[in-house]
């Protein structure tokens, strides 16, 4: 009973603090503090409710138990992280985005290909590509190569479509100016069109970060060596070791946010000139 009361108290306090904070003019500090307090409140309520309502830890382990499990099995988590994120997701991400970028630059030279590939690419980007996972696992074996292949297929089309669109983002005036400078194709590409395409390219890169992690983890459901985050999640669910599953989810969430944040920071550094970054 006391836990439930504590949960409601935490909710009331967290909400009240946030209302007070958000009434003030928005600064950097409140912009960070408000969501942080919201997150902490949710975790406290979760902890209180699990104890108060006596939910079995088999169904929903309390955050403290997850934290303890996390601290206790860093070895396994690290091994899974290397297998899934570094070997599977990251290598696939680099290969897929790199290939999509190069092909986008190539087809940009041929308007015919562009008009053909853009609608098809847009169509394919909306398809449930994750379904390719079992096929690719069959082709490339159980180890990380097949996971990287799934990631390549998943990130390729969003990246391709975004890059091609970005390369069209310059207007006639700018291209004519380059022509009056007697700039050749390479110079126009490197000095005008690629920089102008950067906001689009980074948009594609950001979408691809989430897709890469999802692809690498889900591909492991279809067969993997005895390590990796997807493998650990599916087997631990079978053993009802949900605290370990949640620990893996924490890793995935932190990695996903860090990956996304890293690309966003890079974007800020590269496209500092763009209106959306100056605001």
């Amino acid at each position: 009973m006391i836990w439930i009361v504590a949960g409601f108290a935490a909710w009331a306090i967290g909400w009240w603090v946030n209302v007070q904070l958000s009434k003030r003019p928005k600064t950097r500090a409140t912009g960070l503090a408000v969501p942080a307090i919201f997150g902490i409140t949710i975790i406290v309520i979760w902890e209180c409710m699990v104890h108060g309502l006596e939910i079995s830890p088999v169904l929903l382990p309390p955050p403290s138990m997850i934290a303890a499990r996390f601290a206790g099995s860093t070895g396994i988590l690290w091994q899974d992280f290397v297998q899934t994120v570094i070997k599977g997701a990251l290598s696939g991400y680099i290969l897929g985005c790199g290939a999509a970028f190069l092909i986008a630059v190539l087809i940009d030279r041929f308007p015919f290909l562009q008009r053909g590939l853009l609608p098809v690419g847009n169509f394919v980007a909306a398809l449930p590509i994750i379904g390719m996972a079992p096929i690719l696992v069959m082709w490339f074996g159980f180890d990380w190569q097949s996971k990287a292949a799934v990631v390549v297929v998943m990130v390729f089309f969003p990246m391709l479509v975004n890059t091609v669109q970005g390369l069209q983002a310059t207007d006639h005036m700018q291209r004519d100016l380059m022509r009056t400078y007697a700039a050749n194709y390479m110079q126009t590409l490197l000095k005008l069109r690629l920089p102008a395409a950067m906001p689009f390219i980074f948009n594609g890169l950001k979408i691809a970060t989430t897709l890469a992690l999802i692809g690498a983890i889900v591909a492991e459901f279809f067969g993997s060596p005895i390590k990796g985050m997807g493998f650990r999640i599916s087997t631990s669910v079978g053993q009802l070791a949900l605290d370990l599953v949640w620990a893996e989810i924490v890793v995935a969430a932190v990695v996903g946010s860090a990956f996304y944040g890293g690309v966003a920071l890079l974007e800020k550094a590269v496209t500092f000139w763009h209106p959306s970054q100056r605001g």
Binding site: T30, P35, T210, I217, I233, L242, I249, S257
Partner: peptide, 26 residues
């Protein structure tokens, strides 16, 4: 609601960096 804007919106965005499909089995 300004409070909701400031507290929920960042979490909505953060929720998508979590590979949710991974916890589908759970």
């Amino acid at each position: 609601n300004r409070t909701m804007d400031m507290s929920v919106m960042p979490w909505v965005i953060a929720s998508q960096t979590i590979p949710i499909l991974a916890i589908a089995p759970m």
